[in-house]
Each structure stands twice: as structure tokens, then as C-alpha cells.
Design a binder for these strands. Structure first.
Ligand SMILES: [Mn+2]
Ligand SMILES: [Mn+2]
Ligand SMILES: [Zn+2]
Ligand SMILES: [Zn+2]
Lengths: 128, 128
DNA sequence: AAGTTAATAGTAATAGTTACTGTTATGTTT
DNA sequence: AAACATAACAGTAACTATTACTATTAACTT
């Protein structure tokens, strides 16, 4: 069988740029609203479909929030801190990943990704 | 203002026992079906309300699955491996938590919980 | 230029969860 | 023990994030 053909689409590239242009780790609706500033008649379904494809092809990351999915244009190795008060996501410095690598070998699983998430209260919320 | 009064309820205690009796890290519907074996006319709303209360009071843990919430009756310190093929959650041995503790001090955040999640393919799925 | 079909806009449907409402049961006060 | 106050309940409606559907458009192939 033939390889799946993925065609270029203006919408997909715009969505990718929107996700890559921010540090907010947006959800689908945020991406939708931002993308509509560039393509006013884009459909919400198109945003969802393309976000999923971009995750599938590894060009963006998928994050799990409380009751929503969030996306991350930064596909480099990093972890997250989530503020339980304001809901903001912050990138944090990575612990040496070799810790996890050696850990992986103790188990009978094929480990494909490590995800370390810290939760608490951010500086902003602590100050105010 | 007075402290919130939490009354005993047969339903809540049964739900707690159901969650504590398993290692599957169940979602709300699984808990609902299991609890109905004991209290046949319990309402799904009651299950959700009590699961939330049990999380709130720290008697069970809340986990984020792909598009669902899961619960864990094991509130001891441990981490998880999730199989992306069969969706099962496994408890895994904890890395020395002091790693995270020292890490926390580098940041201007008040860190309240660490959550390490590994994803990949489990032994069962690798074999078959 | 004509043909193929991936991708789209728009909308309907699904699924997990929460909100509401009248009734029941738990814990308290007479 | 009886009356009371209200947390919790069963049952159901509403909400919300996401996916599915459908007729049309546009990207690539021949
Ligand atoms: Mn990030
Ligand atoms: Mn567990
Ligand atoms: Zn905050
Ligand atoms: Zn598996």
C-alpha cells in the first residue's frame, strides 16, 4: 500500500505558526480565535483536525490540562510547571534525562516518552 | 464562619471502597458500574460528586487520561506508566524524590506536587 | 486541461462531566 | 423521642470539549 499523502494547506501552516508563536501552551479554542485573525472564516473543526495532525506528525506537543487538551509549539526536551491557582503553564528546566533512561531499563516496558509535571502556585499568584 | 459539615454517607464509603479495591486506576463509569453491584440504584451524579469530594479530601488521587479522568485509591507516593496501546495504567517504583525537592528550590514557585508519567508500550502489548 | 481526492466550512452528534430539583437521610436540638 | 436543619441523594437536564458527517473546494498528478 502507498504512503499517506499529506497535502499542503494554508490553514495547517497558519495553525502551526500560531502555536509556535506563543508560550501560553494554548487550548484549541485559543488557537481557533488567534487563527481567525489571519483566516477569518476558518472552521473550529479544521483547527481540531489540524492540531491532531500536527501532534501526529510530531510538529507540536499535546498536553493534558484539567479538562482540556493544550498544545505546545516547543518540541524540544522540557518539562512543565502548572499553577493550580491561575492555570498557567510554565516551561521548566529539565532534570538530566539519563535518570529516566536508566530507570526505564529496570522495567519490562518500552518507554517512549517521559513526562514530568510539577504543580503548585506560581510567583505571580504567591505575590498577589 | 463555621467549618463545613461533611456527613457520613453509605454511597460515599462504598465508592471509596470500590476505588481502593482495585489497581486498574478506574474512570468514573467503571466506578459507577462496580458500585451499582453493591448499591443498584445509585446515581451517576452521586458517583461523580463523591469522587470529587474524595479527591478534595485527599482520600483518593485524580489522574488525567487522554480524554477522561481516572482515580487512584493508592495515595502513597508513586508514579505511573501508561500503555499507549492498551490504555492500561501501571504503578511504577518511585525515583528518589529528593531529586525533585532540590530541583524545586531553584524556582520561584511553591511546588505542591510532582507528577512523573511514563508512556510507552507495556509487556503484554509487546508480546502479542 | 482534466481527474483524483485531501482538506475545508459549516453543522450535527457524541461523551464526559456538572448543574438542577424535588425527596431522603444524617446528625443536632429541643 | 420528636421536631428540625440541611447534606446528600436519585433522576434528569444542561453544558462543553471534541469528533463525525456532508457537500464543496483546492492541492497535486496525469
Ligand atoms: Mn512547554
Ligand atoms: Mn497508581
Ligand atoms: Zn499562578
Ligand atoms: Zn499495553
Amino acid at each position: 500500500m502507498e504512503p499517506i499523502k499529506q497535502r499542503y494547506s494554508h490553514q495547517r501552516e497558519t495553525i502551526l505558526q500560531v502555536v509556535q508563536s506563543t508560550l501560553v501552551h494554548p487550548n484549541a479554542d485559543w488557537v481557533y480565535k488567534e487563527t481567525r485573525k489571519i483566516i477569518p472564516n476558518i472552521s473550529l473543526g479544521t483547527v481540531y483536525r489540524n492540531l491532531n495532525q500536527l501532534v501526529e506528525s510530531g510538529r507540536i506537543l499535546k498536553l493534558k490540562d484539567e479538562a482540556m487538551v493544550r498544545y505546545d509549539g516547543n518540541t524540544g526536551q522540557h518539562d512543565h510547571f502548572r499553577c493550580s491557582k491561575c492555570g498557567k503553564w510554565y516551561d521548566v528546566e529539565l532534570i538530566d534525562q539519563s535518570i529516566f533512561k536508566s530507570f526505564a531499563e529496570k522495567h519490562d516496558f518500552r518507554i517512549e516518552s517521559f513526562n514530568l509535571e510539577l504543580e503548585g502556585t506560581c510567583k505571580n499568584c504567591l505575590d498577589s
